[in-house]
Simulated assay, not measured.
Amino acid sequence: MFDYPVELTPDGGTVLVTFPDVPEAITFGADADEALLQAVDALETALSFYIEKRLPLPVPSAAGGRPTVRPSGLESAKLGLYRAMTEQGIRKADLARRLGWHVPQVDRLFDLTHASRFDQIEAAARALDLSVDVRVSPRDAA
């Protein structure tokens, strides 16, 4: 759902990582493996800017043989909720009312640096008439 393709470019002894679909996300590493590890943080940071500015999240393009990077599981769940909320035209205040929460609680739910509890994510999903599915799969599986 949030598998974003990356471009890896040698850059003077390091490897530069850029995201064609998320131009704000740029990082590097000593080699390709380290660069891809750093890319997760760069992606999450860049996507948090979209949430802060209440912008739609960029849609990942086809990988086309390029490596992909995805946010961690918790952040992916938060991003899925944010995308659903914006697609349904629901504001944070509306979601807070549906949940019986204060708006700062909803703000924390969409803060990608905040370690939200999973039961809160599930409650927000139910308030949006959605469910959360979790699966564990081999690393190379889609």
Rank of each mutant, 00 (worst) to 15 (best):
A46E: 05
L55H: 14
T14M: 09
R54G: 02
F118N: 06
V106A: 04
A39F: 02
G12F: 03
Y50M: 02
A35W: 11
F28V: 04
R126T: 06
E7K: 09
I121C: 08
V106Y: 00
L79G: 11
M1E: 05
Q105I: 04
G100L: 12
R135F: 00
I51Y: 05
V134M: 02
V15W: 01
Q38K: 11
Y4L: 09
A46Q: 08
S137I: 15
L130D: 00
V69D: 02
L130K: 12
I51T: 07
L74Q: 13
T68G: 05
E7R: 12
T68R: 11
L74V: 15
R91E: 13
L130P: 01
A123M: 01
M1V: 08
Q38N: 15
Y82R: 10
D129Q: 15
R135N: 07
A42F: 01
R54L: 06
G89W: 05
G13F: 10
D11M: 10
M85N: 07
D21G: 07
P10L: 07
E44A: 10
T18P: 01
V69L: 05
A124K: 11
A39H: 03
T18M: 02
L109I: 10
P71D: 12
F110C: 04
A141P: 00
V17R: 08
L16S: 10
H102Y: 03
L99Q: 14
F49M: 07
E44Y: 01
V15F: 01
D94N: 13
L128G: 08
P104T: 12
D41C: 00
P67C: 13
L37D: 15
S137V: 15
L109V: 06
D94F: 02
Q105S: 13
L37A: 14
Q38T: 13
I51M: 05
E75A: 11
E122M: 03
T86V: 14
G100V: 14
D3V: 04
P67Q: 14
I26M: 09
K92A: 14
V134F: 02
L109Q: 12
K53V: 01
R91M: 06
E87D: 11
D140S: 14
W101R: 15
P23M: 12
A42Y: 00
T45R: 08
S137Y: 01
S137D: 04
G12P: 00
D94C: 06
L81Y: 06
Q120L: 10
R117Q: 14
L95Y: 06
T9A: 11
L128P: 04
L47E: 06
T45M: 03
F110W: 00
L79V: 12
K78T: 09
L130H: 05
V103E: 15
H114R: 03
H114A: 12
